[in-house]
Design a protein around this nucleic acid. Structure first.
Lengths: 292, 292
DNA sequence: CGATCTTACGGGATTCGTAAACATA
DNA sequence: TATGTTTACGAATCCCGTAAGATCG
């Protein structure tokens, strides 16, 4: 028995209209085709559903028993279909993202706002985690995609640059270095530098740069949250090297671009290879690329 | 989109087996046909359900969303089908009968017992009503069929004789008439006859017979229930003319056949023309005919 | 007799299976 | 390179619609 749904729908329409002819018209079918469909359905179920006579079509007891369950069945099917269509049409859905804390605090919120306004039915779950964990979350499928630095070579991860972030020196406005257009790395060896947490990608990059250039790094204070670091800088407790986008637009701070090879980081999309993203995630990525 | 059920079933099997090849084998299909079916389903829903790669088949988020609802859908469908099959196979069902009180009290109970033993899943609803109401109940579809005397000429009613019931005189064992082999109607003109209720078909028949033969009927007591009539007779309060089958097998009574044209009543099946009976009702009728 | 459901049969679309191409680990 | 999925195409099937037949009011 094939095509059961169409058969059930046919039966329901006949039951509603009380006539094969009207039902056939409603279904855009010839009466004969309808007859055959009902017969096939009855053969399949093993019972007669309808009483036929040229003047009257009525339900048998079996037909009455089946009427409500079959209606419910088609309703359930419709719900499944429309739920899927909603996902496809971006009326509903979930986008799950793992992103660097600097992005979550800096560049992402405006984009999120746009996205939520344009697609209010789509829920966005944002997880701010350090670079290493982004790779794991993406690999394990716990998020749709990641936003971070070039992924480590875990098999199955793809990277696609979205924006470049350069390292800047953050100093208090009244600091001697605040007036410089750019600054070189070796001008910072004597400055107490406030560092981000040990796991952070920024920390890694900064230490890497100093090591590569064989320069001494004078470690100052250390804080996990970038906003804490900025507050410490603002209070004159030191200077800090942070992504350009970490600027939280409050006064009292000056941002000086660092002039050194390798201070620009590729920030981009981390996905699993072969991963077909949900329509909602696709759309988010499209807006993301458009945004930068 | 046609044939949705088969498509959904295909999707579920692929999801379970995690492989197109295995699923195709399980569905007795070639892998290519399966591929097409899944593609059609995805086109219909507007979303991808599966992540394909030669080494791995996994569900997309849309696929995961649909998995449980679709499983439930097929389960519901199976329930509908097996419920109908149960009806057809006489494992379940309802037979609703309207029958004359005399039948309900006399001939029917043994048949009912047999039927219930053979088809324990089928519920039998028996309504004992006077002949006139049987016709109405059958006509209005409130019972599957009736058991009574020849139906009145309400359009749409069919009658089919099942057994003949002849009128007998019921007298106390010590009554003078008790020794007769048969009795003629004119021997009863002086006897006080205990009558059944005014609506009953037996009462009608008795009065008709006396009237047709231009004989005087000496009315005695009157009771609605046949068992009451018999009890009155047994107490010597009169004699009564009742169907042969009214014999309740208790002692103290003698049954004398009446010798008169027209004392035999055709008792039979009353159905609506064109009425397709439920399998359970069909079976009951078959047993009924077999029984007599 | 008329309206309606059913059966019979030819044309057309859909679907299936085989074989080759493609992709991934 | 080998396994498993997808595409292409010929063949079979199934389904629909037209027309004639049957049936009930």
């Amino acid at each position: 028995m094939k095509n059961s749904i169409q058969h059930i729908r046919a039966f329901l329409v006949v039951a509603q209209t009380g006539s094969f002819a009207k039902a056939a018209a409603a279904l855009n079918l010839s009466p004969s085709a309808l007859t055959v469909q009902i017969q096939q359905l009855e053969d399949w179920l093993g019972v007669a559903l309808l009483e036929r006579s040229p003047r009257h079509v009525a339900l048998t007891s079996a037909g009455q028993n089946n009427l409500l369950p079959m209606e419910k069945l088609l309703l359930d099917l419709d719900n499944i279909v429309s739920a899927s269509r909603d996902l496809a049409a971006l009326r509903r859905g979930v986008v799950s993202i793992a992103a660097l804390p600097s992005l979550c605090a800096g560049a992402l919120p405006p984009l999120l706002k746009d996205f939520r306004e344009q697609f209010p039915g789509i829920e966005v779950r944002l997880r701010d985690v350090v670079a290493r964990r982004i790779d794991l979350l993406v690999r394990d499928g716990e998020v749709d995609f990641g936003l971070g630095v070039q992924a480590r070579t875990h098999y199955g991860l793809e990277f696609q640059t979205v924006l470049e972030d350069r390292l800047c020196l953050f100093v208090p406005a009244d600091h001697p270095l605040a007036r410089l257009r750019t600054i070189k790395l070796n001008q910072l060896t004597t400055q107490p530098i406030i560092l981000t947490g040990r796991d952070s990608s920024v920390r890694e990059l900064v230490e890497q740069l100093f090591a590569d250039a064989s320069l001494q790094l004078s470690p100052g204070l250390e804080a996990n949250y970038m906003s804490t670091v900025l507050a410490l800088v603002r209070q004159g407790l030191g200077v800090s090297l942070l992504p350009e986008s970490a600027d939280d637009a409050r006064e009292g701070l000056v941002k000086v671009p660092v002039d050194h090879p390798g201070v620009t980081r590729q920030i981009g999309l981390i996905t699993r290879t072969g991963q077909t993203l949900s329509p909602a995630a696709e759309q988010f990525i499209a807006m993301l690329k458009d945004f930068f």
